[in-house]
Design a binder for these strands. Structure first.
Lengths: 151, 151
DNA sequence: TGGAGATAGATGCGTATGCATGGAAATGCA
DNA sequence: TGCATTTCCATGCATACGCATCTATCTCCA
């Protein structure tokens, strides 16, 4: 009974938390040093850019970013205040609105990506031997995300 | 140039963040549902239990838990207020104090571990095929933690 | 021995988060 | 059609966090 979960599983759990903490912290620190906003801002803008041209509803952003509702709500307020997004009343649904990225938001994305890219390479790519390892790591982590139970 | 970082590296990065967010969130939620405090409390108590019998200084807890100084300081204040730890003036060094776990803290650990263990198994162990996968995942994540650059 | 600098730890301030709730519009159902 | 339920989003409140700074002590060296 003391074997559930097994030692390798506990080790994987522990390292998952530590590795993400370490790597995310390092990446966020690189962004801060460059005077750029937190990663969550980029995530939202990225979803907006990848989304349909007519913009996205806050609810859709929640599902795509996995952030809780109240969090998205206030993050959008900050992004709007900073001029990176704008809200348009949503014709079909009077409860909500549609979120669009502004030109200023696009500028932010362009400023962030070089720093972000370098940080990913430094803190992830550079620590792995080759792309095969990255691929394996990505696969295994992918298993943890879905709700499906394997094995 | 658009190949740095490579796609597998970006995918690994993205999944690292998502997987940890997902799994840690699920584990913390399990604890909350059981009326238990956040994982950080358990982490500190665990370090105290694994540490020397005479207790640990806050600074040592910082290094072991990887939490920033101000965070440990306030976490200890909360733990003390809840009766899980106690502070003893430190004889050799008048600046600080020594932190000891109380009986109540040990009770908390005993209450948390069954829930915590089950959560790890549910959200990590159950998603992986076998211990070999867990071992591989742990190895790869371990690479990301150290500052050493491989390859 | 005395004083500069380093280290331990606490805390003020602004901001982000979780949780619960609120209000408004949409939907479903009798 | 009218009302209950659900969905969308905002927000009040308490807590936690990041950052900078402060005090107190310790260390080291002239």
């Amino acid at each position: 009974m003391s074997e559930i979960p097994s030692d390798p599983v506990v080790r994987a759990w522990s390292r998952l938390v530590k590795a993400q903490h370490h790597v995310l912290g390092a990446v966020e620190a690189d962004l801060r040093r460059a005077g750029l906003p937190p990663l969550a801002w980029y995530d939202v803008l990225l979803e907006l850019r990848n989304g349909p041209g007519e913009g996205l509803r806050p609810r859709q952003l929640e599902r795509r970013t996995l952030l809780p509702q109240h969090n998205i709500s206030r993050l959008l307020a900050r992004l709007e205040k900073a001029g990176h997004i704008e809200r348009k009343p949503c014709g079909e649904d009077g409860r909500g609105h549609t979120v669009l990225m502004t030109e200023r938001g696009l500028d932010l994305m362009r400023a962030v990506w070089p720093i972000y890219r370098a940080a990913i390479q430094r803190h992830v790519g550079g620590k792995l031997a080759d792309d095969a390892e990255a691929h394996t790591l990505g696969d295994l982590l992918g298993r943890l995300i879905g709700s499906a139970k394997v094995g």
